[in-house]
């Protein structure tokens, strides 16, 4: 569904991504793990059209046959093609209500009836959001905010969901719940690219995974295989060999 080929991205004078290749197939959860500063968030921002691409390509399969060049599209177009990012640190509209946040998730959609139906679905999926629809997003707890961030992204009806550090700053119990939710959504057919520092949790649910180190992909393979890889275990899982 999504292919990154030889992708290079700079931030200022620094080459953050030094030619990475990555593929996400329909129906998969693909994890991208790596240390702080490896370039994980930069990868997602490049896909979302927030950062200019220096070299290489970002291709998205399209129904019309020819893949689309996401690297040449502005952010508004990328969203319109169903590639939706749920950003690091949640980035909710803190001063707007829960309902308004959800409606903004559906900003590019014009099918009003379906949007209404999706709002009802979000209230089922995350009952607390239904109860607090009139409350400001900034007044929710950390876990509730994460649910709202995911629900807001789902309101866009993503073909591909880019999840950036969904477990960041959450209590362990809440992390479990979020990962359960991610798995459940995937079973319903949402394809995902998951960026995580919590490598163990990410590798456990991912079909395949890539390890990013200072702008290069250094390992890739099925999640379970990487869990057994001695170098990955030592560097990212804090486990001995």
């Amino acid at each position: 569904m999504l292919t990154l080929a030889e992708l290079e991205v700079r931030r200022g004078a620094t080459r953050v991504l030094r030619g990475i290749d990555l593929e996400v197939r329909r129906g998969e959860i693909v994890a991208l793990i790596g240390a702080n500063g490896a370039g994980k968030t930069t990868t997602l921002h490049a896909i979302s059209g927030l950062l200019p691409v220096q070299a290489g390509r970002i291709l998205l399969d399209s129904e019309e046959g020819e893949p689309l060049r996401l690297d040449r599209m502005p952010a508004t177009e990328v969203v319109a093609r169903g590639v939706i990012q749920c950003p690091e640190g949640r980035q909710l509209f803190a001063g707007l209500t829960v309902l308004e946040n959800l409606l903004l998730g559906a900003y590019r959609r014009s099918d009003r009836e379906e949007v209404k139906r999706d709002l009802a679905r979000m209230a089922e999926l995350f009952p607390v959001l239904g109860e607090r629809r009139g409350q400001n997003a900034g007044s929710l707890s950390g876990g509730e905010q994460m649910m709202l961030a995911i629900a807001r992204a789902l309101m866009a009806r993503p073909r591909l969901l880019l999840l950036d550090e969904p477990s960041l700053g959450l209590a362990p119990q809440m992390v479990d719940r979020i990962f359960e939710t991610i798995l459940a959504l995937n079973r319903e057919g949402v394809t995902m690219l998951l960026v995580e520092q919590n490598a163990l949790a990410a590798l456990e649910i991912a079909h395949r995974a890539y390890v990013l180190e200072t702008g290069r992909i250094v390992r890739s393979g099925p999640g379970s295989a990487l869990l057994d890889d001695p170098r990955v275990r030592a560097a990212y899982l804090g486990l001995g060999t």
Partner: peptide, 23 residues
Amino acid sequence: TRLGRAMRALADNLLAARLMGID
């Protein structure tokens, strides 16, 4: 209105507004 909501969203959080596909 949709445009009015987009304005408030943009004032509240620029990054998130761009990720919602707001022009």
